[in-house]
Simulated scan of single mutants.
Amino acid sequence: MEIVLVVLVVVFALGFDYTNGFHDAANAIATSVSTRALTPRAALIMAAVFNMVGALLGTGVAQTIGSGIIDVGERPAHTGLIMVLAAVVGAIVWNLITWWFGMPSSSSHALIGGLTGVGIAGGITVHWDVILDKVVIPMVFSPLVGFGLAFALMIALLWVFRNANPHKVTRRFRHAQTVSAAAMALGHGLQDAQKTMGVIVLALVAGGFQATSEIPLWVKISAALAISAGTYAGGWRIMRTLGRRVIELDPARGFVAETVAASVLYTTAFAFQAPISTTQTITSAIMGVGSTKRLSAVRWGVAGNIAIAWVLTIPAAAGVGALVFVVLDALIG
Rank of each mutant, 00 (worst) to 15 (best):
A152V: 15
A91E: 11
P166V: 12
G80P: 10
V145L: 14
L115T: 06
W236H: 08
K220E: 12
G234N: 09
R162W: 10
D129N: 15
L312P: 06
S180R: 00
G187E: 08
L328W: 04
F16N: 05
L190R: 03
N95E: 05
I65D: 03
A13W: 02
P104I: 14
R237E: 05
A303L: 13
A42G: 12
D129G: 12
G207V: 03
I131S: 03
F12K: 02
A182C: 14
I124Y: 01
W128Y: 13
A261S: 15
S263T: 04
E214H: 10
E2W: 04
A87I: 00
L190D: 00
G288Y: 00
T313C: 07
E74P: 03
V256E: 13
V72K: 14
V145R: 01
F255K: 01
S142T: 15
T281V: 15
R245M: 15
I306M: 08
V256T: 12
S108E: 06
T196W: 03
F173L: 14
F16D: 00
G235K: 06
A150C: 09
L312V: 10
V326L: 15
G68T: 05
A307Y: 01
L8G: 01
P143E: 07
F141V: 11
R171C: 03
V145N: 08
V135W: 11
R253K: 11
L190I: 11
M197I: 14
F147I: 12
A181L: 13
G189K: 00
M52D: 02
S277I: 05
G148C: 10
G301S: 14
I112P: 00
L96W: 05
L57I: 04
G102D: 10
W159Y: 12
D250C: 05
G68V: 06
N27D: 13
P76Y: 11
T212P: 06
V140L: 15
G254F: 05
G119I: 09
V324W: 03
G73K: 08
A183K: 06
Q273T: 07
A183W: 10
S107D: 06
L249T: 00
H78E: 13
I247V: 15
Q63D: 07
L217M: 06
A185C: 10
G198K: 04
L249F: 04
A307T: 13
T241I: 11
I131N: 11
I97G: 08
A37R: 02
T98Y: 07
R41K: 09
G207D: 02
K220P: 01
L328R: 04
N27P: 08
H188E: 15
L202K: 04
A152T: 12
E248G: 04
Q63K: 12
I276D: 00
S106Q: 01
E248I: 11
L56M: 15
A226I: 07
L157R: 04
P143F: 10
I120R: 06
F209L: 14
V135S: 13
A26V: 04
M239G: 09
P251F: 10
N20S: 11
G198A: 14
N51E: 06
I45D: 04
A285P: 11
G123Y: 04
P251C: 12
L96P: 06
G208Y: 05
V260M: 05
S142G: 07
M184S: 09
S296R: 15
A271K: 09
A182L: 07
P251D: 09
T196A: 10
S142M: 13
A309I: 06
H175G: 03
T125K: 13
V205Q: 07
E258S: 12
A229Q: 09
F16Q: 01
